[in-house]
Write a protein that binds this DNA or RNA. Structure first.
Lengths: 226, 226
DNA sequence: CGCGGCTTTGATGTTCATCAAGTAAAGTGG
DNA sequence: CCACTTTACTTGATGAACATCAAAGCCGCG
């Protein structure tokens, strides 16, 4: 494990605003934590004391609704500031976070980040921008999903995986059918039915979790107008 | 019209972080603008150059979806920082804003606010907190609404008006039935049907836009479990 | 090897959007 | 100020979309 941020390939430009001294402090204080698939990084209601940065892997951010029901708010990918949703407004996490894949998270004491906001205006500005962008993105995604019918939602989420996360038209789904449903507000059965429909219409090839988008134009149309 | 912020009763504690000089500059640069019911404060896609603070009145923040369809994202009340959703992440408004009631808005050049973030760490911190809280609230509200059935949504929005906005169980709706629908994702006809249902069940008294909640316990139950 | 969770398909039921049609209210121009 | 137009409100009937229920095969895991 590296013990400095200098060599980190996945360095967000947020940290470019730090001066040498601040950066050294950060580098010293940070911890790198690895999670296996399925492991929980933080739980709804827990006290927040760390600022988390996803270096590698994939996480899901979710909320527990009923005894066996979850709502997935979003998926975090490398370079995302995980938990930024809660960090500055509450002292407790609003959402739970767990690993969808083997993931590596950098953890920085929250106090240190808060001190940097106080003393470094550029850092504060960039953080404001990042946070704002992230919130925009999440809210927009939610609003978008709710406008669509089930076929549109399914197409939308497949395109999200393809374009935003894997940058490929062929990928392995990191989530179960059930989790897809939790992500786009629909029942597992209907996720399956619509995926089969897409397969029958030659829009997709499906092999378990393996997805290959055969007709991306059609999928985009369905996502847009469905 | 007052020409200083000193006497403003509706002063957010955000501005308490400013020093004398900064406050004087702010006081000088700010403009107070009055809007009549129905007037548009800003339109989706327009360039953002001002930081807006709602002093008095009620605004709606919304998105145009189709030729005659809107989605209302939220309602801003006095002391809210209007348009904060877009200010730091984009140069153009993501949403339109219009007045539901006679409203008074303070407008501060955005450049000035950005300068204050750079030079005043406490101001930056408070702004981060405010923004974070606002985003949490909006996202949470949306997620909540989507979980509920139509009766639940209707109950929820009535309780929001009652508790968050008018602080009374008797109030005049600032919006049409159609707008209620746009706020909680349902058709006008169903808003009306369910309001009538609540009236028949003696949960509400309704006279046009006048609402009186007769059985708040029932309404809370419907909102929670519906 | 057996148990629980995931996946799949089919049948059924409920909720809600849509269509239709009429009244009331609120703006608009002569 | 009144005729006219448009927008808001209301109720009923119908159908489509989606949730729910049921049953069976599959897979991974202890």
């Amino acid at each position: 494990m590296s013990n400095s941020c200098d060599i980190c390939f996945y360095r967000s430009f947020l940290f470019d605003n730090l001066n040498k001294k601040e950066f050294a402090l950060l580098s010293l204080a940070r911890k790198e934590i690895n999670f296996k698939k399925g492991e929980v990084i933080s739980r709804e209601g827990e006290k927040i004391s760390e600022f988390l940065y996803l270096k590698e892997g994939l996480l899901k951010v979710y909320k527990t609704i009923g005894p066996r029901k979850e709502q997935i708010i979003g998926i975090a990918k490398p370079m995302d500031f995980v938990g930024l949703l809660s960090v500055f407004s509450k002292t407790k996490y609003l959402y739970s976070i767990s690993a969808l894949e083997v993931s590596s998270v950098c953890s920085i004491p929250l106090d240190m980040v808060k001190k940097m906001v106080l003393s470094n205006g550029e850092f504060a500005t960039t953080l404001l921008e990042k946070m704002s962008q992230m919130n925009d993105h999440i809210l927009n995604t939610r609003l978008n999903i709710n406008l669509k019918n089930l076929r549109g939602r399914t197409a939308f989420i497949l395109l999200m995986f393809s374009k935003e996360i894997y940058k490929s038209e062929k990928f392995e789904l990191p989530v179960s059918r059930k989790e897809i449903g939790e992500l786009i507000d629909m029942r597992t059965e209907n996720v399956i039915r619509i995926l089969s429909e897409f397969r029958n219409d030659s829009i997709l090839k499906i092999e378990g979790k393996g997805i290959e988008i055969m007709d991306i134009k059609r999928l985009e149309q369905i996502s847009e107008f469905g």
